[in-house]
Design a binder for these strands. Sequence first.
DNA 1: GTGGTCTAGACCACT
DNA 2: GTGGTCTAGACCACG
Lengths: 125, 125, 125, 125
Amino acid sequence: MAWSLDSDRPVYVQLAERLKLQIVSGYYSCGDRLPSVRELAAAAAVNPNTMQRAFAELERSGLVVTLRTSGRVVTEDRALVEELRHDMAKLQVKTFVDRMAEIGCSRDEVLELLREVLEQESANL
Amino acid sequence: MAWSLDSDRPVYVQLAERLKLQIVSGYYSCGDRLPSVRELAAAAAVNPNTMQRAFAELERSGLVVTLRTSGRVVTEDRALVEELRHDMAKLQVKTFVDRMAEIGCSRDEVLELLREVLEQESANL
Amino acid sequence: MAWSLDSDRPVYVQLAERLKLQIVSGYYSCGDRLPSVRELAAAAAVNPNTMQRAFAELERSGLVVTLRTSGRVVTEDRALVEELRHDMAKLQVKTFVDRMAEIGCSRDEVLELLREVLEQESANL
Amino acid sequence: MAWSLDSDRPVYVQLAERLKLQIVSGYYSCGDRLPSVRELAAAAAVNPNTMQRAFAELERSGLVVTLRTSGRVVTEDRALVEELRHDMAKLQVKTFVDRMAEIGCSRDEVLELLREVLEQESANL
DNA sequence: GTGGTCTAGACCACT
DNA sequence: GTGGTCTAGACCACG
């Protein structure tokens, strides 16, 4: 997963989304200490202020908590993380189902294609 | 399906995509006569030239054929339409699977969520 | 050789050209009696007056002579026919050479390609 | 080679053909930067949009590639250019051979006339 | 009426 | 400056 940034949406929103993704996907686990704003900003080639703003978003949602003196960590609230993960997943699924319906795929066809692709992916591991 | 147009991608591309979708999904069937360029342009609130350009794309792909003076019809080549439909569907599925993997969903979880959503949709009918 | 007629040039000119071609190519030989204007007009699906006008052109050039009572025949003047044939051929060759030069073909390449095509044609007989 | 335009065929098609000819003939070589659309449009006395459309044709065939902001260049793919050149040449030859056959010229006569004309052309240099 | 083409003029993104 | 896109409005050929 690279730091790919569109120029048409606010950068801080994109950064926040990516960090959120890294948390719900388990790349950063509950209780993990996160890299410093400066480090992440450098890695993403953005201004530290922008990265800071991204973190502000994550704190509002409770995914990340700031420890006065020792940086930021992922929340210990596993249920919250899991809930967000589930919400994101469900949104993706709904969007997917709608698109397949637009293309004119039946319920069975969707499942059939999905199984095909999943097996290919498995085979590639 | 409304004539929703982003401002960030060429309008004629979006129009072509939408028409393609309407054909592969069966909204317009093989052999069906399509509305005139002027009609569709009016409906989509774009300049007729722009709609014409969209049709040029469809014609190059073979989905649509032009009858000199009596409008355009969807190709009679059902195999071509089916092939395109399958390609579009498979691309959607692959994108979907990748995104779910990013979120950190297992194969089984994807299938489980999908079944959930599909049943909800069925229930809504 | 079919009676293919463009709509952008005078029909009688096209008919005259075609008849001229049939004479110089030997389809009608010197001294041959030609079909009647009515017959030819019917075959070409044109008005007899139009075909008549085509013949007038051929008579002016001396390729065809009218016998008072017994229709028209191809001139007996073999030299004239041969001269016209040679002129037509030379014009074609010149046009051809010019076009090949435009494409950027060398003298040798032209000859090489020509031999290729001529042999293919021979093989097809 | 002048910007001669018929009025009976689409202008953009004629422009595209001419540009194609200039590329395969080596007037513009592989990698050469082409004049801007506006320049060429002015030279050919057509609307820039029309010239743009001509370039779109060339781009679809792969003969020309667009550099975002710094104009267009001829493809570096010499093989493609050579292939197109050969195709064009062969088509001309075939057409020529057919026409000569219609006139009633034998294989040897065609070659004889061709040599004559080629020598005249050489002499004119 | 249909599609096809062309012009004129404008705006945008990119550098 | 470059190419890319869009609009507006016009004309043509075809039946």
